[in-house]
């Protein structure tokens, strides 16, 4: 291979330009705006600003409401990520073993993914409605009166169920294709060595799926943190009340519902830092132990 592939020194930069432009316009510029706005108190109509230094950060980080939202975000993200990974993987393994009608099962399991988050939220609202919700009637059989919108935990559980349900097919698709890329010879060799299919899964198949699992974990964490907004907004019916809320939803509430742009910007900068830290941790620590073939 030739060492000089570009005639001009500027060639590579020119080719990078479109990508850099996209990143600058859609990420760097708004991010810089948010950082800048987070140091001010802003009048919503005219944007006249009063410099307040780090006050917006202090206000957010010392508020009980913010602490509660952060706590819920951690639980919500952990539960949704693990539930989607676990159930999605289980369904994929099961579907992989099915010999007859394979495609029908797969299609049925996948098509939930085509539902947009707000629609999923609306379905959740109806299923968990206090007066007419079928799932509320179902839970009542076990002697629990489920009150979504009144009880914090009932609402939290309903949100987690709807958010997980929506994301399971995504996990399913990726794990299934991961399973199909494992060579048959490996499976057959394992089958000779060990009779227990469960043990074979954990010692042979699961490690071979590690790159897929790692990727899905990152994607699902991002999903739970950011893309569940539509579901949450619909399930609380626009009234936060005493309902659980994630940090992203709180950014929206304070900024767009409450018109406190400075405070909301500070919260989104905090989120940005969290995500940055999370990404570094994931890639530095976890990826080291995972081997892509």
């Amino acid at each position: 291979m030739k060492s000089a592939q570009f005639d001009s020194r500027f060639g590579p930069y020119l080719l990078l330009l479109p990508q850099m432009a996209v990143i600058s316009i859609f990420f760097l510029w708004p991010a810089a705006e948010a950082v800048w706005a987070s140091f001010f108190l802003e009048d919503p109509f005219f944007g006249t600003r009063v410099f307040v230094g780090l006050e917006n950060y202090v206000t957010a980080l010392t508020s009980d409401d913010y602490a509660r939202a952060a706590w819920f975000t951690v639980i919500f993200t952990a539960v949704v990520t693990l539930a989607t990974l676990g159930i999605g993987m289980w369904l994929a393994v099961a579907a992989d073993n099915v010999l007859r009608g394979n495609n029908t099962y797969k299609t049925l399991l996948m098509w939930v993914y085509a539902i947009a988050p707000p629609v999923a939220g609306l379905i959740g609202v109806m299923l968990f409605d206090q007066h007419i919700g079928p799932l509320v009637d179902f839970v009542a059989l076990f002697g629990h009166e489920m009150q979504v919108g009144v009880s914090w935990w009932d609402t939290a559980i309903a949100m987690m169920i709807v958010a997980s349900w929506k994301q399971i097919p995504y996990t399913f698709i990726f794990v299934l294709s991961g399973l199909q890329s494992i060579p048959n010879s490996v499976r057959e060799a394992a089958a000779i060595d060990c009779r227990s299919s469960i043990r074979r899964f954990w010692t042979v198949i699961f490690p071979l799926l590690a790159p897929t699992t790692f990727f899905l974990m990152i994607v699902n964490i991002t999903y739970a943190l950011f893309e569940t907004f539509g579901i949450i907004d619909l399930m609380v019916k626009g009234e936060p009340g005493n309902n659980p809320k994630t940090l992203v939803y709180k950014v929206y509430l304070d900024g767009f519902r409450g018109n406190d742009l400075g405070g909301s910007s500070a919260q989104s900068v905090i989120l940005m830092i969290l995500v940055l830290a999370l990404t570094i941790v994931q890639f530095r620590l976890i990826e080291r132990r995972i081997h892509y073939s």
């Binding site: 206090q130 007066h131 979504v148 919108g149 609380v236 019916k237 009234e239 005493n242 309902n243």
Partner: peptide
Amino acid sequence: YGTGWNDNQA
């Protein structure tokens, strides 16, 4: 029945 207006009206 929660903060939502309609849930209580219902």
